[in-house]
Each structure stands twice: as C-alpha cells, then as structure tokens.
Design a binder for these strands. Sequence first.
DNA 1: CTCGTACTACGAGGTTTATCGTACAAGGGT
DNA 2: ACCCTTGTACGATAAACCTCGTAGTACGAG
Lengths: 121, 121
Amino acid sequence: MRVTSDRALDHPRREDIRLEAVLHALSDPMRLRVVAFLSGVDDEGAPCSAIDLVVSKSTSTHHFRVLREAGVISQVYRGTAKMNALRRRDLDELFPGLLDAVLHARAAQRRREGDAEPVPF
Amino acid sequence: MRVTSDRALDHPRREDIRLEAVLHALSDPMRLRVVAFLSGVDDEGAPCSAIDLVVSKSTSTHHFRVLREAGVISQVYRGTAKMNALRRRDLDELFPGLLDAVLHARAAQRRREGDAEPVPF
DNA sequence: CTCGTACTACGAGGTTTATCGTACAAGGGT
DNA sequence: ACCCTTGTACGATAAACCTCGTAGTACGAG
C-alpha cells in the first residue's frame, strides 16, 4: 500500500476497538453501504469518491471518519485521494463472524425488500 | 407464556425488523447487557427488575422500549411485572448468525478487558 | 505557477439520544 | 380497602448525531 503523503490519520489500535462503537458505526444505512462496498474491494481499498453516497461531500467525510474512528476501516492518503479499506483482519480476529453476519444480514434484507441492484452495494 | 393483563404493547412484525435498527439497539452498553442477560434466560423471559442496570427506572424503561421497538426483545405484561424475552427465533431467521456473533463478541471483549464476572452479563 | 480534483475544517440547523425526577397506573397480597 | 411492587408517562436537560454550505488545504498535471 503506497503512501504518497505523510499526513497521518488516527486509527484505533486493534485492541482498542470497541464492539459498541463498531455496532454504532454499522447502524447507519450510509455507512453500512460503504462497508458493503468495501467488502468487495481488495486490500488497496478505494477512494471515498468511488462510492456514490447521495449526500454532500462534508457528510460523506463525516461518515468515513466515524467508520475509521470506530476501527471499521483504515484510511491512507495517496496523492489527493484517500484510500479506504475494511479492517477485515482486525475485525475478524476481535469479533469472529460479526462482519460476515452483518454483511449477509444486509444482503438478505435487500433481497427481501426487492432492492437487489446489479451492483452489490 | 401466560398473560395476566390485556394491556398490549406494539412489536414490529418479524418481516418489519430492520437491520439498522437492530444494530443501533445493540450499540448501547446498557442494552447490550440486557440482551446478554436475556440470552441466558428461557422463553418465559425475565422481568425488567431481574437485571440491575445502574440507572434510574425511567432510563431502564426507555432502553427496554428501544429494544422492543427494534424487534430485539418481546415484552408481555404479567401481573405487575413485564416479562422480557429475546426474539431469538425471529432474529436468527432474519439475520442468521448475527445475534450469536454479537454475543460472542461481547463476551470476548469482556474477557480481554478482564471484566469477567461470576454472572454472565 | 496555476488549475482542477479530492477531501477537510468549521460552524450552524434540526433531530435524536440518554439521562433524570416526579407523578401516576395496574396488579397482587394482606 | 390499603399498601407495596413494578413499571409508565411526561417534561426537562445536556450531549450526540446527521446534514449541509462555505471556505480552505494538499497534491498532481499541465
């Protein structure tokens, strides 16, 4: 993962990730959508702009920060972009099965509601 | 499950339970504690007073209501008490593995933090 | 150096939340 | 009937949250 800027971002260490914070981060539809999207992306991650939330840029920034501060995603600057990746390894180690259960639950709910779209997010 | 009062309480139907609402309900430490406690209780459920949250009665009522309205627990009057039970069957059917993952995650977190108490909640 | 892209910082608005205290209702036991 | 136990309703307060717009920074490309 090449970093082309030394601007640093605070991430909680794995052992400081709190279940309550993770659940809270996942309880927002926007953020759940981001997580679902990132779950289908490789370790390099994707820039914030890769997923079209239907909100303003500031709101988008806000949601990505909530996810980062909860320990759900990692963010790294690369040029003018900021790459976002799921902290799948950390989450799976801390809370085995949780992330998968949430992702499957969301997928199931979308199926039930006929929201299935060609894109998986 | 004997009901000794006809006072009715609104519960979402199973198909109306929303993942976001469930995750939100579970993202509060008090409520997570309630759920962990109820997971070790039979289908009859337990009265609100069975678990000692360290908050006022009104706050306690509030948390139980949030759990009920999210579809996480069911509540039934029985005499002066109100019996609370996890809607495990509904949740497991809608979101397989989610509840267990959350409960295990919480237990693991407590173990890591040395919060293990004799009581399992 | 200037421009465009990608994102941030700050502050504001409106909503929801967690908490409490007080006052009240419903039901069981004496 | 009268209490005691259990939980509710209502109103208040302070904090957190989601949303936005505007103004600004960092970086790469030309």
